[in-house]
């Protein structure tokens, strides 16, 4: 664990009051009045949330709290009924998922979405940016994108080495183990040079050894200056690595604060104990 280092962004959070909807000194994502209803059911109803820049923010809550729905709304994978939010100072509500990704908000999935019938290297190269060769007319003229591709290959090998996948570059992604696929997905996300990494339950269904390794990678990202928002319901994981914790229940945010604040928060304890003990089950699929 390389968490001894304390960045300015982390230090700045020390002065923030632990109340719901509190303003942060420097926020990368600001959301207001976000709601999402399914039929008569309100899945998400968030009045105000600021996600701080340069730190690890955890979005927690029991099953059915609406965290994955909220998460999907923020990154454009679902459409909100009402609400507005901005990413990096620019309006983000109503933006399509791929546009947000191009702007630096990249996500992973709870059930890993590696591209099975593509090699590990192709998985990585796909995410590289910019890609002149993705233009239909330029695609045929290899000369116009050869150099770009070579740069992506170099970068991909570096990242794969960091995630210890460099010996598997020519394997089909489907041939990897579950853990390796989690790592590949994270490495692939980094290929896009994101400013905000959104991880949807990165530790779900992962063995303890890999959990440690994933935690190490996540903190390393923070230390390189990226912001991280991740959905999780395993309390131990949250307490270990997050700098700020947002807790949802019944579609609303019921508490915010540093891990220590949250650990003693009555509303959080009640939400967890009152609704759900099964933090280790597979979670809801919404």
């Amino acid at each position: 664990m390389a968490a001894e280092l304390r960045t300015d962004a982390m230090a700045a959070l020390d002065l923030v009051e632990a109340t719901v909807g509190v303003a942060k000194p420097d926020s990368i994502l600001v959301a207001d009045d976000v709601t999402r209803r399914y039929g008569g059911l309100t899945a998400v109803e968030v009045d105000h949330l600021e996600v701080p820049r340069g730190v690890i923010t955890a979005l927690i809550g029991p099953n059915g709290a609406g965290k994955t729905t909220f998460f999907n709304l923020l990154c454009g994978f679902d459409r909100a009924d009402t609400g507005s939010w901005s990413f990096d100072g620019q309006r983000a509500d109503g933006a399509k998922a791929h546009v947000l990704a191009q702007r630096g908000m990249v996500r992973t999935f709870q059930l890993t979405k590696t591209l099975g019938r593509m090699t590990v290297l192709d998985n990585m190269l796909l995410a590289g940016r910019p890609q002149g060769g993705e233009h239909l007319l330029r695609a045929l003229w290899r000369g116009s994108w050869r150099q770009q591709e070579a740069d992506h290959v170099t970068k991909a090998y570096d990242l794969l080495a960091r995630f210890k996948l460099d010996k598997l570059t020519d394997e089909y992604a489907a041939g990897l183990s579950g853990g390796q696929r989690k790592l590949l997905e994270m490495a692939r996300a980094l290929m896009t040079d994101p400013s905000l990494v959104m991880l949807d339950e990165p530790m779900a269904g992962v063995n303890p050894a890999l959990t440690q390794s994933l935690l190490g990678h996540v903190t390393a990202l923070r230390d390189e200056g990226m912001s991280i928002l991740f959905v999780e319901h395993d309390m131990d994981v949250i307490m270990t690595i997050s700098d700020w914790v947002v807790c949802m229940a019944g579609g609303r945010i019921i508490a915010e604060g540093r891990p220590a604040d949250i650990a003693g928060n009555a509303a959080v304890i009640e939400a967890y104990l009152g609704i759900d003990h099964g933090a280790s089950t597979t979670g809801t699929i919404s």
Binding site: A97, H98, F109, E134, H135, A139
Partner: peptide, 27 residues
């Protein structure tokens, strides 16, 4: 020529998983 270019790579990615391609910024 087309399917071996980055353009073709995106097509294959879409075939495998549209959402993954979308999450990586592909329209």
């Amino acid at each position: 020529g087309l399917v071996r270019s980055p353009w073709g790579r995106v097509l294959r990615a879409i075939r495998e998983d549209e959402d993954a391609a979308r999450a990586l910024g592909k329209n």
